[in-house]
Design a binder for these strands. Sequence first.
RNA 1: GCCGCGUUGGUCAAUCGGUUAAGACGCAUCCCUUUCACGGAUGAAUGAGGGGUUCGAUUCCCCUACGCGGUACCA
Length: 516
Amino acid sequence: MMPIKKGKVRVRFAPSPTGGLHLGGVRTVLYNYLFARQHKGSFILRIEDTDQGRYVEGAEQYILDCLEWCGLEPDEGPHKGGPFSPYRQSERKESYRQYAEQLVQSGHAYYAFDTPEDLEKMREELKRPDNPSPQYDHRVRSSMKNSLTLSQDETDKLLQQNTPHVIRIRVPENEIVSFHDLIRGEVQFNTNSVDDKVLLKADGMPTYHLAVVVDDFLMQITHAFRGEEWLPSSPVHILLWKYLGWKDSMPEWAHLPLILKPDGNGKLSKRDGDRLGFPVFAMDWKDARTGETTQGFREKGFLPEAFINLLAMLGWNDGSGKELFTIEELIESFSLDRVHKSGAKFDFEKAKWFNHEWIKKIDTPVLVTALQKKLSEKNLSYETHYLSKVIELVKERCTYVNDLWEHSVFFFISPDPDVTAIVSKWNDEKTTFFNNLMEVFQMVQPWDSVSLEHECKMLATANNIKPGEVLLPLRIMLVGGKFGPGVFDIAAVLGKQETNKRIASTLQVLRNNKVG
RNA sequence: GCCGCGUUGGUCAAUCGGUUAAGACGCAUCCCUUUCACGGAUGAAUGAGGGGUUCGAUUCCCCUACGCGGUACCA
């Protein structure tokens, strides 16, 4: 059993506005959500709606739509408020400066007046083959223009003149920062390899480093889950919790393994999806810069249940070999100590398998609704009862929800039978047989698959025809080609009138064909 | 370069010192189905390398190799 902090569990998800909700992002939300639900806690959505200081149109709505589709409803968030409003980054920006100033007062941060050019010059001058990217750290800060090297008067003067400046954390020399990660155990860093990260930018906006710590503290977050790419900056965050005097309120950390591209290694990116032909976003994602839209899992025809299921299994399992989980079962059995340490390559074939399984498993009405939507696009309308029967027959052959239509068109539109496969073997005996079959079908009671098959085969035997010789023709008459579920199942659903109508019309086609 | 994290079949992975090293996806073959799928059966395929510790290491420790992540006034 995982040691849980005292007090109510509070977890948060804080997506950036420019990335779309990709696989890794959704998995992070999912694990947050599962953990919160399991511990009867709160799942908080804190949204970043600005990028480089500019408001990103539609970012918030996109995130909310994705979460809704996935069924991962936050308990607190920008759209529904909560005790720690506001939940939008753009509405919180005013409050960060005081915390940065507080750190300056206590000696754990300092003002830095270096211009971007100064920084570039420093990096260029200190660059060595064995140190290609020099950091602004305890070794170099003494030779830079900041409140540690300037006198108090000079500093005050620069501040009064509104000289552009940032506030940087003053990382101590040669100290060990260690913390416990719920997934990785004890993790240690020597502060000598940690640089003096900017906390407050020249435009007055906080960097992520300051913002997460302040926000997590103010929102009383108890458990912080994020991608493994954040592990290297965690010592900065730990130091901030300590220097702000909040060490006792620091959340438990969990750095989740990365989701990797299927070929080669490396983090999965949007480009990999484009390149390899599969979605990486939960829903269609329109890139604000290029105006390009990339297809999402929803639009591709994935069931949210399947999407959630496959994502949950990418980095976690319950140890029993079970792979199909409902969200309730996931809440029940999820545990952080069974989350893997290493990244998992995304396998789209396996993702398709999950969806296929879920299409077979999900309640028919869900699929009926999906099919109805497609039908209304075609200006067709059928009653639910009929659609349910159709879906029962075709769902097991569908990988995507969108396949339902293609696999069932012939139930709604009379096919144009492709007689090429049967015309060469056609003869008068078969014409007679099918004429008789229509008469037999007219009488058959009850109109179900078993009776139809029985009557058809009886008639064939009586006419000295092998059943196999008439089965393919019958299929082509009813569905138009060599595909689809069992012929008699199809006939049973189509009904007496429609079945006979299709037999008759194909007979007509064959007659014309012969004449022609 | 430095710092950190990781390494069981092609992929996802079980094993928490003793197993013929599960299972799933994919692949191959066969069966079922007088279509196509579904389904069933079978098969090929795995502990990065080297040292320890131990009666015994895939499992614990160290080194090496490899991979990934970070090294920004991006997140």
